[in-house]
């Protein structure tokens, strides 16, 4: 095994081009487990922790360009206003020690359906910035990023540089079920973002299908229902029947399996409950914000 320590992004891309099977390692919270338990013996480890750029984030007009290695702890503390869904998801990642070390790049690279960041990214809307020495930078929409169980749209010579996450234009929530009250892998997870500017709603579901998925039919149904009822303008309560239908459609978007962490049937059920609750929380928050704005006006 060789340990490659590029000092810059260019060096990292060159190394990845030369050794396409090299395994990138940053926080190490996935890769080192595989090495410690003899599940993986890559020819090369490509250490990305010396590349300072990966640890920076920048706020753009529409989105935040989040360096792949910005640790979850900093996402929680520094990006709660811009990326509330992701900040909530970050707070549910493993333990404080892991949150100090792991970042979204790792979640995307591993592309496990159980990765906590995915539902939040799907709900907020995001593009993954990847690069290769040969072809330079390209942007992969998050909806096209997850291609299979633990598979993503990266080419062998590419590395994840950053993820551009849309800044919140409305309330966002994230909820995850685990069988322990901390330090637990998701049995299933759900992210919801209201986008008042476009009067749309986006969702993300984790651990309930071979890849992280959106509940497209549920999103469309809810957006239509809110529009029809004039809810965006009035801010009035979402009727229970709408919430119920939304929850059902979210359950229906799942394609889960039975495994040691939970049954498929439970996952479907729990996604529905989380969908309904996160809708209530975000909508209450939207109404509250409207009232505050109106009060101030």
């Amino acid at each position: 095994m060789d340990f490659l320590r590029p000092a810059s992004w260019e060096e990292a891309l060159a190394a990845k081009a030369e050794h396409p099977t090299a395994v990138p390692i940053a926080g190490g919270t996935d890769v080192m487990v595989e090495i410690n338990f003899d599940h993986r013996r890559p020819g090369h480890l490509l250490d990305l922790t010396r590349i300072g750029d990966l640890y920076d984030w920048e706020r753009g007009e529409r989105s935040v360009r989040l360096g792949a290695s910005v640790p979850y702890t900093r996402i929680m503390s520094e990006l709660r206003a811009d990326l509330p869904g992701l900040a909530l998801a970050a707070h549910t990642v493993a333990s404080p020690q892991i949150r100090n070390r792991g970042g979204v790049g790792g979640n995307l690279g591993t592309a496990s359906p159980a990765g906590d960041a995915h539902p939040a990214l799907l709900a907020a809307g995001a593009e993954v910035e990847v690069a290769s020495a040969a072809r330079g930078t390209r942007m992969i929409p998050i909806d096209a990023f997850y291609t299979g169980v633990k598979r993503n749209a990266l080419e062998p010579d590419e590395l994840i540089r950053a993820v551009h996450v849309r800044r919140a234009d409305g309330p966002q929530q994230f909820s995850k079920v685990g069988t322990r009250n901390a330090m637990v892998i998701a049995v299933c997870a759900f992210g919801l973002a209201l986008h008042p500017e476009t009067r749309t709603v986006r969702t993300g579901i984790g651990s309930a299908a071979p890849t992280p998925v959106r509940a497209a039919a549920a999103e469309e149904f809810l957006a239509a229902a809110l529009e029809e009822g004039g809810h965006w303008e009035s801010g009035k309560t979402v009727p229970p029947s709408v919430a119920r239908q939304f929850a059902q459609l979210c359950s229906g978007a799942c394609n889960p399996i039975d495994d040691v962490r939970g049954t498929a049937s439970y996952r479907r059920h729990a996604v529905g409950v989380m969908a309904r609750r996160t809708l209530m929380w975000t909508w209450e928050s939207y109404r509250g914000a409207r009232r505050t704005t109106e009060g101030a006006a």
């Binding site: 549910t92 909820s175 609750r277």
Partner: peptide, 11 residues
Amino acid sequence: PGGLSNTTHGE
């Protein structure tokens, strides 16, 4: 119940 995973606010 659910702890840090943010599953309920009392519901």
